[in-house]
Amino acid sequence: MRELQHDSKNSWLNYIFLIVLGLVMVYPLIWLFTSSFKTNADIFGSSRLLPTTYVWDAYKLGWQGTGQYGFEDFFINTLKLVIPTVIFTIVSSVLVAYGFARFNFPLKTLLFSVMIATLMLPNASVMIPRYILFNKLGWLDTYLPFIIPAAFATSAFFIYLMIQFIRGLPRDLDEAATIDGCNSFTVLTRVLLPLCKPAIFSVGIFQFMWTWNDFFNSIIYISSVSKFTISLGLRLSLDASSAVSWNQVLAMSVVSIVPCVLLFFFCQKYFVEGISTTGLKG
């Protein structure tokens, strides 16, 4: 009896600790949300969470945007960019990972090390050559520099993640499927893919969030404001020498993280499973 009491007291402490820690983690988001109703003077002048004077039109004005294009355009643009990129990344990474994980072919080790080597390449060093390449292909100011490379499995990180996951699936399943009449492609589609679901979700969610939030590549490749994505739209009016309506910027930041948060919540079950089981043998 005494032991039980001790246990429940302990778990209460645990909960309190976790709640406090959780609040600390979420605080920036709460601040972001409440600050979207503040005036500039409030945002920078005080550290209070709640506004002293409420500004209600930040969402409406922010959504209209500056100049010719508003956030409706930026949202549609971002979806046009992100959805194909995510789908192509998943398809291509799974195919390439399947090849590396299950087959033996000439120069396999060499190709694998080249693939891993691209993971180590700093982004800054390939930026200019890549820009010149895409320029020659006539892809600048379109979304092709994001979509086409995704279709050719250029993100080594995702391939590696998938390889590790597929390696963890027993080969016996493949063999059983082969005996039942599957060829090498249907082994992938009918047997391995359903088992890979957690890893596929991880790849999808990661790629979605990274592409959604990506600022630097977008600013380099996209120059027309009509094609701007959300991350570019948010910084459209930030400049040291002019007045910035920070509440509008923050309001749009709140709106722009909604899709990422929703996606994460809906796929949370698979996602957590995905990153915690990759790399586990057997």
């Binding site: 010719q68 600022f215 380099i220 027309s224 701007f228 910084r235 459209l236 009016s237």
Partner: peptide, 13 residues
């Protein structure tokens, strides 16, 4: 055709 943005990333671009 206007190509405008904030200061962030402009120099690199």
């Amino acid at each position: 055709e206007a190509e405008y943005q904030g200061f962030d990333g402009y120099e690199q671009k």
